[in-house]
């Protein structure tokens, strides 16, 4: 067992884990942060995206030990003092989700898009930037709308 120290959603945490354990497993099973989901095993669907030191990362493709010393932000840490993050609010207002399973990853992808490309995102950019996020429910129409609106308000 290895001790991994991280800051998760602003709180310092220390967990004992095997070296083979994935970050997403530690988040979900040891820290009870079940908002981060796993929907594939080939690192393609994006449901597991979290921010590691501000950068969107597939937590299913990251060992927990690799994140030692890092600052992690999950979907549970986006809303501040009960106020939804603009990206979260935009998903609600634009009906950008149906079953909700891919949604945390979609929201994280939207947040990361703004970090890399700024707040003014056009439809074509958003469509191509969602290459790593799969949704079966929405047909993406309203996800694109939601990210555009959410980005503009960030």
């Amino acid at each position: 067992m290895t001790t991994v120290g991280m800051t998760v959603n602003g709180d310092p945490v220390s967990v004992e884990t095997e070296d083979r354990t994935l970050l997403v497993e530690v988040l979900r099973d040891q820290l009870a942060l079940t908002g981060t989901h796993v929907a594939c095993d080939t690192s393609q669907c994006g449901a597991c995206l979290v921010l590691i030191d501000g950068v969107a990362t597939k937590s299913c493709t990251t060992l927990a030990v690799q994140a030692d010393g890092s600052e992690i932000q999950t979907i549970e840490g986006l809303a501040k003092d009960g106020d939804l993050h603009p990206m979260q609010a935009a998903f609600n207002e634009n009906h950008g989700l149906q079953c909700g399973f891919c949604t945390p990853g979609m929201i994280m992808a939207g947040v990361d898009m703004v970090r890399r490309l700024g707040k003014d995102l056009d439809d074509e950019t958003i469509r191509s930037e969602l290459e790593g996020n799969i949704c079966r429910c929405t047909g993406y129409v309203n996800i694109v709308k939601a990210i555009k609106a959410g980005a503009a308000r960030m």
Partner: peptide
């Protein structure tokens, strides 16, 4: 890959 792959 995709943006998250490119991040890492």
């Amino acid at each position: 890959g995709d943006p998250a792959v490119r991040n890492r």
